[in-house]
Amino acid sequence: MKRPVFKSASIISAILFATTACAQPSSTQTITRSVSQNAPATGQSTPIKNPAVKSTATTANVTIAIDSRLRQTLTQAGIKAQIISIAPSNLPNLYQVSLVGQPPLHITADGKYVIQGELQKNPSKRQVTKTPTRSNSAQIGMPVSAAVKSAMLANMSELKNMSAKTPFFYTAVPGVIWGATLEGVPFLIADDAQYVTDGEISVIENGQFTGLDENFEKRKNQSVFKSLDQSQLITYPATGTEKAVVYVATDVNCPYCRMLHKQMGSLNKKGVTVKTIGYPIYEQSPEQMRGIWCQADATSRRKALDKAMLKGQMTPAPANCKVNYVTPNREKAAGLAVVATPAIYRDDGVLFQASFESPEFLEFLGVE
């Protein structure tokens, strides 16, 4: 199952995904709701007086060549909605394409990268006015620098769910940053934090939409894996020659996670090492999973997780364990933007987007 090109399809995607996954509960305080409660959606400063009439004029900042190229690219890619106008976007290095009856598109000059969504003006007082050094292609999928993150957070005081723990990553569009709330809700924001949208970046290749930017997703996920505390993953090593490594975000109360866990022995025998990220989404799960992760050593943790997954029996935390070993990796894993559990990733960052009960699963892992 492919992830949707535009967010209008994301609800359908979530419904399909839920047939073999436990859906992540919706956050009631996402970044976009916070912004929309404080500021109106904004496009360009020049109002469109007659949206029923197609505009063929170019603005002072859009050349005829770019205007023509973008119209041709979008038409070829299957955009049927009437294009009203094309003007510079409030997101860096993008042009806003206003459409009749649909949210606007924001597209790069070469027509490769596209975002669909209304932009929201950040209502926070701007504390840092200097434009940061823009990212380059080598930084795609990497966490933003400490200086950029500090400057962005300084300009986001009125936005909910934003903190030093919020993950931010460079995208393929210089000046556009991918972020996620700690609940795993993704958003895009300008690197000066002035405009934000809940859209994601899609790609047009060979005249067709191909889905989300897979190169970015892979590199971002690899960055997340590198940030995890490996000692706090419950790992089931391959028996014999290791042929594949996967990361699985799991919850002990998710029935589909339990179904996948029943395959653990078989996967290990096929040469698959499984690294389990504690990712509680059910209300009762955080404390139950803390108990499992509080066990004395790796073997004890595996036994406790097996007991929970295979028998539904939870192991309480020892009286002397007052810490929570699950939360730090769970917060870092927000950068994976998990939609539902179990979320299964190869160690190269690719998310498996079908049922783990399908024949495609072993093909995805490269084993027989």
Rank of each mutant, 00 (worst) to 15 (best):
F6S: 07
F6D: 08
A18K: 11
A18H: 12
A21T: 07
A21N: 07
P25M: 03
P25K: 04
T28Q: 14
Q29R: 13
T32I: 11
R33P: 04
Q37F: 15
K49R: 14
K49L: 13
P51A: 06
T56C: 12
A60W: 15
N61R: 13
A65Y: 00
Q72H: 14
Q72P: 12
Q76D: 04
A77Q: 01
G78I: 01
G78C: 05
S89H: 08
L91K: 10
N93P: 08
Y95S: 05
Q96L: 03
L105W: 00
G111N: 02
Y113L: 09
Y113T: 05
V114Y: 02
G117P: 00
G117W: 01
G117E: 00
L119S: 07
R126F: 10
V128G: 03
A138I: 13
G141V: 09
M142S: 15
P143I: 03
S145A: 11
A146T: 11
A147C: 05
V148Y: 02
K149C: 05
M156I: 11
E158M: 14
E158P: 14
T166N: 01
P167K: 01
Y170R: 10
W178P: 10
E183Q: 14
F187D: 00
A190R: 06
Y195F: 14
Y195K: 09
V196N: 09
T197N: 09
G199M: 07
V203F: 06
N206I: 08
Q208F: 10
F209N: 01
L212D: 12
D213C: 09
E214S: 14
E214Q: 15
N215Q: 15
E217I: 12
K220A: 03
F225W: 09
K226T: 15
Q230E: 12
Q230I: 06
Q232M: 04
A238I: 01
T241V: 15
V248I: 06
D251K: 02
V252C: 10
N253E: 13
C254E: 07
L260N: 08
H261Y: 10
H261L: 07
M264W: 08
M264C: 10
K270C: 15
G271A: 11
K275N: 03
T276Y: 13
I277R: 00
Y282A: 13
E283Q: 15
I292K: 04
I292P: 00
Q295K: 00
S300F: 05
R302P: 06
A304L: 12
A304K: 09
A308E: 09
A308Q: 00
G312C: 04
Q313N: 10
P318S: 08
P318N: 04
P318V: 05
A319D: 10
N320S: 12
V326A: 11
N329C: 08
N329K: 08
K332Y: 02
G335Y: 00
V339G: 05
A343N: 07
I344S: 01
G349L: 01
V350Y: 08
E357R: 14
S358V: 02
L362G: 15
L362T: 15
L365W: 07
